[in-house]
Nucleic acid binder design. Structure first.
Lengths: 227, 227
DNA sequence: CATCGTTCTAAACAATTGATTGAATCGGTC
DNA sequence: GACCGATTCAATCAATTGTTTAGAACGATG
């Protein structure tokens, strides 16, 4: 039997170390840009370890992506923020705020980077990630939008969801180029709360649910979540 | 002297063939994933040609990206659609429609793919592309938004521009994963005009410039541009 | 024809890649 | 201690990588 993990194990298992290192290296350099030697060096594991524990480089990549998406799924706004009894409006706001927050400061940055990289150019691990993580999130948002007052037909529902997700994803997908355009300091001045407030207001106003019961105009700053 | 190009030259120069091939291969497989042999094979050029004409692989990549951005800059909404005398509202609508159109069906797909790949993970060629192409576009949009009725402060101006660009970029950056989620047929049902109409309406409504002089509610379809 | 610079070609370069081998080491069980 | 499966190790594999070399082919000029 495999030793699993003894209770007083300060350093993780070699297999876990390989997954940790693979997550970082693959996230930074991509699949082709990363070498198994580089990964094994960071993981402090012999080169043959990747073949012993995972078979080959490709399978190590797939397993790293799978674990990355499982780790990133925890702080996503599908479970923790969506109180099923609340009104669709507050559920939409919760969805946006949760998504902006997890994009702005993910619990595991390298896991998020790796997942976004795989989503930008879907490979062998994309199907699993979409099935277990992305699609439920997208359907969850669509169900929220479906219940909202301006009842839309299906294509409009789809595009409205895209408009919401696009605004949230932008600050992660296009942060490097945005920093090149406007300077890093201008981008770092945009906190998660500012971005979330803007996206919520922009989206709700676009849906015609704007200044009804929302905060008046500007200068609120009452950020409750994200302790 | 270099031969440049004789007038009755049916097949492009070897240097041009290398750039064409590099554009496609780099766009499809990325910098590390592409090999100079693969590029030279498609370009029907000897392996040493890349070293003779460009020095090394990296410089070939940079030149390919530069040319790709110059080609893609032609059908972008900064010059052809922005009539400087028009009102900022119609200029914003023109900006959005032009950007959505060039994202939906770019004149050179591989050039667009290569440019987006470089922007996703900025490398040696990102600075040039940003300076000569992306930043003017972003500043152009910001100037339009600055003149619009709801006069915003700088951070809000920035985020509003991001909301606009994010919606346009989404359909190019996240098309593969969107097809995985909802199926290719549902994505292909979204024509460029539908997307442009939605983004224009969504954005103008969000800015409080909604149903004033725009088309009434739905079912218009009067797409003028894009002959 | 001879000479020059430009361009292309075949061949090989050293280096790195992912993958594999067989032996050594470790931790239990008999 | 002997045995066993699990794990790790150093060493090496064939293949591919980007790069370079020397020489041939080309066209123009003298």
């Amino acid at each position: 039997m495999v030793a699993e993990n003894s209770e007083s194990e300060l350093v993780p298992d070699a297999k876990q170390r390989l997954l940790d290192a693979a997550e970082e290296i693959f996230a930074d350099y991509g699949y082709e840009g990363a070498s198994v030697r580089q990964i094994c060096e960071r993981a402090k594991v012999n080169i043959a370890g990747v073949n012993y524990h995972f078979g080959d480089k490709e399978n190590l990549y797939v397993e790293a992506v799978k674990r990355a998406h499982m780790c990133s799924a925890r702080d996503m706004p599908i479970e923790n923020l969506a109180s099923p009894g609340a009104s669709p409006l507050v559920r939409l706001e919760g969805f946006i705020r949760g998504m902006v927050a997890s994009m702005h400061a993910p619990a595991r940055p390298s896991a998020m980077k790796l997942m976004m990289r795989e989503m930008a150019h879907p490979g062998k691990a994309a199907g699993t990630v979409v099935d277990e993580f992305i699609r439920p999130l997208a359907f969850h948002l669509r169900e929220i939008l479906r219940e909202l007052p301006p009842h839309l037909d299906e294509p409009r529902l789809l595009m409205t969801g895209f408009s919401v997700i696009a605004q949230c994803l932008y600050y992660r997908q296009n942060r490097p180029v945005s920093e090149l355009i406007f300077g890093r300091e201008h981008m770092e001045a945009l906190t998660a709360d500012m971005v979330a407030d803007h996206v919520v207001r922009f989206t709700l106003t676009a849906l015609g649910l704007g200044q009804s019961k929302r905060h008046a105009d500007d200068a609120d700053g009452g950020a409750d979540q994200r302790g």
